[in-house]
Design a protein around this nucleic acid. Structure first.
Lengths: 226, 226
DNA sequence: CAGTGTTGCACAACGCCGTTATTCTTCACC
DNA sequence: GGTGAAGAATAACGGCGTTGTGCAACACTG
């Protein structure tokens, strides 16, 4: 009946249940007892598989970064790297909105079940940025961003998109500005600010819009399997 | 001995203690019992004055916005509005770093003591942006930002600075990029991106640096009185 | 194919939490 | 001075994360 070794399926089931509880009923509903009840086990399961409640939260953070990476992986590399960059930004935003509760844990700082980021967790996050650094490098190689530093440009993109998404999820961006309008404006400003010319930036942004649905929004990332 | 009416001093004392516990010992140390112990009262004090624990958290959020407003108020309006804008950005960042735990509650989303933002709380936050909108208007009037929309520019500034600060507080910005370098780079990119020319932007940024210490960092903000 | 030890798991308990009911005290008002 | 309203202390309730205890089931030894 009971398996002898730790069961990977049970492990992912627990993460899925936790993520769903978090998404559907908020942070207050994330408890060992509720998770155990949903999984049909005792509260001990959380401790055998994750050591503690915050261990499970950490697992959810890694899951969040994994989904972001998967989202990035769906973005093509074309001969218009600036458009690629815009699509990556959209992918970041889309991922954050679809997994908003995970996102809050990833970047919200502290306060969920006493969880706090370790340097390993952060490194995981920074590693995810590699895709953007690479794209920035291609923009520079294509002569679009002048002599910029790819790492710095990638950080500027990250900061911008992250700031937008964070305020958007916090409910701070409303009419008449709104998140969509702010996103487009910011992207334009930033691209021009790092060296692209106004017309080229506008063209790449227009090109990116056509790709967003196909490369970002279509394969609804699998949240759970329960 | 016991006052007949609700004592405003006791009220602010409770907020101060809560903010200090949060800052010094993290979210886990924020409990009615610990607050009561420090204040020399019973746990009931939290309920008499704030209705609940999350009511106290809400009060801390308002306190956070009040400090930000105070921080903004210390920034002068000069005949170089772009430099003013850069100083405002620095003020935002400085305030967030000095009150990082309040900041996390203001924008971190959910999850502290079941607290969640109401539309009133958000409105308070947006109102604080008025100073930035005004400054953007002066930039435009000075012919620095072309025909831009002040509200949109202010949002771009907010998004940028907020994104930077949030990642900085999360520990994600490290060498070789780092928060300081990223901040200067982002400010330059953004100013140029919204219409300023490269040389003018650089000059205003240089001018702003000299003002930062005096107008932002000197008057260590008083904890509270509300 | 037994014997044996390890280990996943359920159950119950501990100490903490937010919150509430009860009780007492103390002041404001007539 | 009497009376009623309201702040505040105490204790209790249910829920939380976590931990100790005991059992049962598998893996491994011979």
């Amino acid at each position: 009946m009971s398996p002898r070794k730790l069961d990977p399926d049970t492990r992912t089931t627990l993460v899925d249940i936790a993520a769903r509880l978090l998404a559907e009923h908020g942070a207050g509903a994330l408890s060992t007892r509720k998770i155990a009840a949903e999984a049909g086990t005792s509260t001990m399961a959380v401790y055998t598989y994750f050591g503690s409640m915050s261990g499970l939260v950490r697992e959810m953070v890694h899951e969040g970064f994994a989904r972001l990476e998967q989202q990035f992986a769906g973005v093509r590399q074309t001969d218009d790297p600036v458009a690629d960059m815009a699509v990556l930004g959209h992918a970041y935003r889309h991922n954050a909105r679809v997994n908003s509760h995970l996102y809050a844990v990833m970047f919200g700082g502290q306060s969920l079940a006493g969880f706090s980021l370790t340097e390993d967790d952060r490194q995981h996050g920074r590693y995810t940025l590699a895709t953007v650094v690479d794209c920035a490098g291609r923009c520079i190689a294509a002569g679009r961003f002048g002599e910029a530093d790819p790492l710095l440009v990638a950080h500027e993109m990250w900061i911008t998109t992250h700031g937008l998404v964070n305020l958007e999820l916090g409910g701070y961006l409303i009419d008449p500005v709104g998140a969509d309008r702010a996103y487009e404006a910011m992207l334009t400003s930033l691209l021009v600010g790092v060296g692209d010319d106004v017309k080229s930036a506008a063209a790449s942004l227009a090109a990116s819009k056509k790709r967003r649905r196909r490369e970002v929004e279509t394969p609804e990332p699998v949240t759970s399997r329960n």
